[in-house]
Design a protein around this nucleic acid. Structure first.
Lengths: 346, 346
DNA sequence: TAGCCTCTAGACAACGTTGTCAAAGGAGGG
DNA sequence: CCCTCCTTTGACAACGTTGTCTAGAGGCTA
C-alpha cells in the first residue's frame, strides 16, 4: 500500500464515499446524506461546507447502496425481440420517455426470438430488482414469472399475449388489421389472395392469419391451402413461398404480407415478375410511399404501444391494484396504390 | 406486524433472502452463498437441501447487494442520440451482443441531441456504477467525465469524437466517404453539386462537408456558398434548402445528402421535380434499392462500429491500460443508379 | 494412537447508503 | 428564570450479499 488514500488524492478505481465527504467537511455522515438528497434541516452554512467537500472530492452517490437500502431501483427492464428491428425503435423510445418522466432508467435486451434467452434475460433483470418489466414475449409460457410478480415486480406484455399467466397486455388489433388488408384487396377485384406470414407459434402471425381467413370467408371466397404460408421471415423462405404461389397453375393475383420483413422481400420478388401483382403489407415502413407502386400497408402504432404499456406499468408501480387489463391498439390501413392493382386478366 | 414472515408464506412485496433459505435448509448463511454461486466445498447432500429451500421459497439473489459488495455491476451504459433512429439499431444490438458475451447487461438512453440531457444520463449511469460507457456524444465538452474515468469507469466514444478529453474513439471515415460520394457525382459529369447536411456543431456534418469541399477542390471545381446548407434535418428545413438550390439561376444538377434523414426528404423532393437530379446519400437504408431510381449511398457499418466500440470497452475492463485509441471504420460507396443520372442539358 | 492435513461449514465484518432515534442548543411562553 | 418546543445534528442499525477466518470432523501417515 503506497497510495495516499486520504484527503483529495485517492487510489485509482476507488471512489470517495459519504464518509470521506463527512470527514472532510467536519460533519456527520447523516448530514452529508441530507445534503445529497436535498432533505431539510441543514443550515445554509453547513450545506455549503458539505457541497465544497463534495466537489473537492468528486463525490457521486453510489446508487447500488442506495438501492439496497431503499428497495426501489428506479429502473425498468424492456425485453424485446431485436433491438435492431426498426419496428421496435419507436416502441423502445416511447418506453424510455415514459420511464424518464418517472425518473427511471431503462435496461434492455434482445431475446432474439428465443424463449430460453428471454427467460434468462428476464430473470437477470429480476435479480437486479428492476421495479417493472415490459416484455415482448418470445416464449409462450411465462409461469416462471409468477414468483417475481408476486414479489412485486410489475409486468406488462406488449405485442403478444402472456403465456399461461394473467398479466397486463397491450396488443395491436392484428385480427382487425388483417381483415382490413384483405378486404381492401377483395374490394379491388381479387379472389385468389396469398398470405405469407411469420412462424405459426407467434401470436401475431396466427391472429393475422385468422383475420385473413375471416375476411375471405366474409366475402364468400374459398382459401386454397397453397395460398397460405407461415414460417421464417428469412428472405429465401419468403421468396420461395411467394414464387410458388405466383407460379401455381391458378396463381394468386394478390399477396398479403404478414409483417415488415416479409413485405420488403415481397416487394423485391414482385419487382422481378413480368406482370403486376397487388400487395398489402402489415407494418408501415419508411419510404413505403416512394417505392413504385407505393406500398399499401396496415400500419401499427409502435410508439403508442410503448407509451401505453409503460403507462400501465407505472400505474401498477404507483399502487394500482385492479385486475390485469388487456388493451388493444387500433391499426390503420394506409392505401398507397399497391393494393389497388387489379387482378391480371388471363 | 400481522404477517407471518417465517417459513414459506411471506409478505407481498418482500422477497426471501439467503438468511431465509439458510434457516429453512438448516445451514449457515455462507453455505447458501456457496451453493448459489457454485463455489466448491459443499457436499452433494447439503447442496441438495439448499437447492430445495431455494425453489420452495422462490429465492432469487439480490444483485444490488452483490454489486455493493463486489464493486462490479456487470452492466454497461449506452447513450445514443435516439433509440428510434434506425441507424443506431444495429449499433445498439451489436453493443448488446458483445456485452452479453461478457455477461453484462446494457442500460441505455437517448440524449435527444441535447448536451444537458446527455450529461444527466451519463452521470445517472455513473451513479449506478456501470462498469463502462459507450457514448455517442451530443455535447462537445466531456470534461465532466474526467473524475468518473479516473475512478475507473471505462469510456468509449462512438460516431463522434470526445470533447476536451482523451479517450477511446470509434469513428466512421466521414471525410473519405464524403469524398467518394462527391467524386462519384463528378465522375458522372456534374459540376454544380449541392450539399445538405446536419447542424454544423455535429462533428460528422463538418467532416462530410470537408470531404465535399476537398473532392470539389481536387476536381478543380468552385463551390458557390449557396450550394452548401447545414442545419436541422427536419423535413421542412431540408425541403426548403433543396428547392432553393434547384431553383437558383444556376441550379445544382446533383445533391449530396449528409445523412439518412436528409436523404429521405431529398428523395421526396426530387420525386416532385420535373427533371431528374442526381443524388448520393450518406448512410444506407432499407429499400434504397427499390426506389426508382435506386439510391446510391455511402454506407457506414453501424454494427461494426458498435462491435468495435464494445470490444475496446471490454479490453479496458479487462485491464488493458495503453493510450486511448482512435479507430476509423471504413465506408463503402454503393452505386445503385441515382448517382449516375447525368446533368440536365440546358 | 498421536499428529497432521484436508475438507466442510459457519460466524462475522464489510460494502455505502438511509431510517430511526436521541442529544444538544436556542427560542419563546408563562 | 424555568419549562417546553423546535431545529439542527450525529450515532447507530439495517439493507442482502461476499470475503476472511476459524472450528470441527474425518482421513491418512508414522
Amino acid at each position: 500500500m503506497t497510495d495516499t488514500a486520504r484527503g483529495t488524492s485517492r487510489r485509482y478505481g476507488t471512489r470517495p464515499t459519504m464518509k470521506d465527504v463527512a470527514a472532510r467537511a467536519g460533519v456527520g455522515l447523516k448530514t452529508v446524506s441530507r445534503v445529497v438528497n436535498g432533505e431539510p434541516g441543514v443550515t445554509p452554512d453547513t450545506e455549503r461546507r458539505v457541497q465544497e467537500a463534495i466537489t473537492a472530492l468528486g463525490f457521486r452517490r453510489n446508487d447500488s447502496a442506495r438501492i439496497l437500502r431503499k428497495g426501489r431501483t428506479a429502473s425498468i427492464g424492456l425485453v424485446l425481440e431485436d433491438l435492431a428491428d426498426p419496428f421496435y425503435g419507436p416502441l423502445n423510445r416511447a418506453v424510455e420517455e415514459v420511464a424518464r418522466g418517472h425518473g427511471a432508467l431503462l435496461i434492455n435486451g434482445s431475446s432474439a426470438e428465443d424463449p430460453a434467452r428471454e427467460q434468462e434475460l428476464v430473470l437477470a433483470l429480476c435479480a437486479r430488482r428492476v421495479d417493472g418489466l415490459v416484455v415482448i414475449p418470445a416464449g409462450d409460457d411465462h409461469r416462471y414469472l409468477e414468483p417475481e410478480i408476486a414479489a412485486g415486480i410489475a409486468t406488462v406484455f406488449v405485442d403478444r399475449p402472456a403465456g399461461q399467466i394473467d398479466a397486463d397486455v397491450v396488443l395491436s388489433d392484428n385480427f382487425g388489421g388483417a381483415q382490413d388488408a384483405v378486404a381492401h384487396l377483395i374490394a379491388h377485384g381479387h379472389r385468389r389472395i396469398g398470405f405469407i406470414g411469420d412462424q405459426p407459434r407467434i401470436h401475431t402471425a396466427r391472429e393475422r392469419l385468422r383475420g385473413y381467413r375471416t375476411a375471405m370467408a366474409a366475402a364468400g371466397l374459398p382459401v386454397d391451402d397453397s395460398w397460405v404460408s407461415l414460417g421464417s421471415t428469412a428472405p429465401d423462405r419468403v421468396r420461395t413461398a411467394a414464387n410458388a404461389m405466383l407460379d401455381a397453375p391458378e396463381p394468386v393475383t394478390a399477396l398479403f404480407a404478414g409483417n415488415n420483413r416479409v413485405t420488403v422481400t415481397a416487394v423485391r420478388v414482385l419487382g422481378e415478375r413480368p406482370r403486376p401483382v397487388a400487395l398489402v403489407g402489415f407494418d408501415d415502413f419508411e419510404l413505403a410511399d416512394l417505392v413504385r407502386p407505393a406500398i399499401t400497408v396496415v400500419a401499427q402504432d409502435p410508439a403508442r404501444m410503448g407509451r401505453t404499456a409503460a403507462g400501465l406499468l407505472f400505474r401498477r408501480l404507483d399502487g394500482t391494484d385492479d385486475a390485469p387489463r388487456q388493451m388493444e391498439i387500433p391499426t390503420r390501413l394506409i392505401a398507397r396504390g399497391s393494393g389497388e392493382i387489379p387482378p391480371a386478366q388471363d
